[in-house]
Amino acid sequence: MNASIVYDVFHVNPFGWVVAVYFTVSAMAAGAFLLAAAVNLLGLKGQQAVGRTAALVAPLAGALAGLLLIAELGRPTRFWRVFTHFNPASPVSWGAFILLAFIIIAVLYARTVLAGKEEGSRGLVAAGAALACLIPVYTGFELVRGRVSPLWNSPLIPVLFFFAAGVVGLSAVVLIGSALTAGVARRLGASGVAAAGDGVAPAAGLGKTIAFFLAGSLVLVVIQLLALAGASTEAVTIVRKVLAGRFAVLFWGGYLAVGTVVPFVIFTGRGAGNRTLQALASLLAVLGVFALRLVDIIGGQSFPLN
């Protein structure tokens, strides 16, 4: 029987694009630090410049994420209250402490890197890496434990966010590394820096690692959408909106085509050796993750609950 809502009040969605930026930037911090940690802990020879670039990107992105989080509050001057009350059931409570601890460790590690003493800081790196792993997990849990939304209440979300951290973290290092001046690149230990603008050459295999994370993210997204397509009426409504409704351009164009397929082809194809193409692919990959976060966050709130 036909039924339609003829009167209801308007509800403003609590989360908007700033939260999508925050999720993307915090993932960038986590992914970059994990790359720095991998270079340090695994002793990857010849990758020191990449590892050092990553070690500098991580605290900057982490601090930016923290500032975004504070700026997004209705009462930013009260942000300190999250540190005077710990609610173990709240992902936001956990996140505040995790992000703060991560930023402190990332700053300390960046200082040791700038001082050229990163060899003796394995404990610090290991602690930072553990916190970096928790960042995409807690941000994912913020959605999982949030609204009763088919797009949010999936156990795949924290895993998807972890893969996204791999994409944006590594891409940011490639992008920023390529933009560094020759002088800075040499100071970071980059070899073969011949001319200004050479920057830090992406490590061999870094592009392919990003491609791996891109493919992993896509597999998880496909699994999630397939699972939802056969679920509740609300879930089917959201999947339709993502695939053929108001989020279709963002999903197909922004996330899939521009943000996943094009960078994947560049990172795995003949463009893998071209620094300009790699930088372009990295930029597109970051934008792709941001587009998917927009779909997740805004799409997840795009239907009336009751």
Partner: peptide, 20 residues
């Protein structure tokens, strides 16, 4: 006096009963 306006409670409520 304790609320920081993070809106997570609004996002958490399955009934859309909260607002800023």
């Amino acid at each position: 006096n304790k609320c920081i306006g993070c809106r997570y409670c609004i996002a958490s409520c399955p009934y859309q009963s909260r607002f800023l």
